Amino acid sequence: MMTRVVVLATGGTIASRFDASGSASVRDGGADLLTGLAGRPAQEDVVDVLHTNSYLMTLRDIRTVVDAVATQVARPDVRGVVVAHGTDTLEETACAVALCVDTPKPVVFTGAQRTPDSEDPDGERNLRDALHVAAAESSRGRGVMVVFAGKVLPAVGCRKLRTLDLDAFDAVNVPPLGKITGSRLRYSGPAQRALGALEALPMTAAFDHARVAVVMLYPGFDARLLDACVAQGSAAVILGGMGAGNANPAVQAWVAQAVADGTMVGLSSRVPFGPVAALYGAGGGASLAAAGAVGMGGLSIFQARILVAVLASASGQSLAPRTRSAVEALEHRSSR
């Protein structure tokens, strides 16, 4: 009997085609993705979950994917799950699944940079690779992964760094997991718990409406934009600090007041690689930490937003302590 893998189709470039105007939109369903795909290692079930480009996705759509993955990995006859997803926000959805779905079965996200009607499309290769990874016994216990351009990457710590190149994704602040060439899958080490000491988090319907703002900082930033975020109902604001997480005295003063008023403030960086660090005063990272900002470790600002939105959707103690504990648990991942 062949191994059974479920393919969850959500749309994206891998399912898009160009029209007469020269613009692309989602046309294909999940069954179309597999039509004519050679070298498939498993028997597939196909489920159409969404039919959209990922830049149009909402938090409700992300929860829909999380729920679909949880349903499929609960089936005893399923070895693994592949999620075909648009690349623009793939890192957010993959992170949400990693945080909220507790399973040893491999869950593999993939997509494409070129539509199937383009010259030299890449979707077939990525999908075939993802199927091999999902079907492999050696993938068990490695958590949620992203397979793209021959790379096997952890979902938490994966980021799209190139807008158009076929090699679009890399691991950021965590090691890559392995490579796949043809049907040969090579992992760089033994399976390890992808989320460190963090246990799977509950995602409730309140996630759909979680108001978590992301604001990138820059020279001369005067905090009025941050005031607007709170005025519009944001329960949390994630700052993309300069360098290792730096701002200025105006932002420091705003953080202190916002935290006193009950707004959770997270501190990430606009720099892709490296963690935030409390190094500088005068509005720098040390000043922001003293004012109550929660450092987001090595999480990208966009995955930090997903983590905080998941935490905000659950009742319990205030958001800042839960976020700090979650980040600390995530940081306790052994390196290879």
Rank of each mutant, 00 (worst) to 15 (best):
Cys158Leu: 01
Cys158Thr: 15
Cys158Asn: 12
Arg159Cys: 06
Arg159Lys: 14
Arg159Pro: 00
Lys160Met: 09
Lys160Cys: 04
Lys160Gln: 09
Lys160Phe: 04
Leu161Phe: 04
Leu161Tyr: 05
Arg162Met: 09
Arg162Gly: 01
Arg162Asp: 10
Arg162Glu: 14
Thr163Pro: 02
Thr163Ser: 11
Leu164Gly: 02
Leu164His: 12
Asp165Thr: 02
Asp165Lys: 12
Asp165Glu: 14
Leu166Asn: 11
Leu166Ala: 13
Leu166Tyr: 07
Leu166Lys: 03
Asp167Pro: 05
Asp167His: 06
Ala168Thr: 04
Phe169Asn: 00
Phe169Met: 02
Phe169Gln: 01
Phe169Lys: 02
Phe169Val: 03
Asp170Leu: 06
Asp170Met: 05
Asp170Cys: 03
Asp170Pro: 00
Asp170Asn: 03
Ala171Thr: 06
Ala171Ser: 15
Val172Cys: 08
Val172Thr: 10
Asn173Glu: 11
Val174Ile: 00
Val174Tyr: 01
Val174Ala: 13
Pro175Glu: 12
Pro175Phe: 03
Pro176Leu: 02
Pro176Thr: 05
Gly178Ser: 12
Gly178Tyr: 05
Gly178Phe: 03
Gly178Arg: 09
Gly178Pro: 11
Gly178Asp: 11
Lys179Asn: 14
Lys179Gly: 14
Lys179Ser: 15
Lys179Val: 15
Lys179Pro: 00
Ile180Tyr: 11
Thr181Cys: 03
Thr181Ile: 04
Thr181Gly: 07
Thr181Glu: 15
Thr181Trp: 02
Thr181His: 14
Gly182Asp: 07
Gly182Cys: 10
Gly182Asn: 11
Gly182Lys: 07
Ser183Val: 10
Ser183Lys: 13
Ser183Trp: 00
Arg184Ile: 10
Arg184Cys: 06
Leu185His: 11
Leu185Asp: 09
Arg186Ser: 09
Arg186Met: 03
Arg186Ala: 11
Tyr187Gly: 08
Tyr187Ile: 01
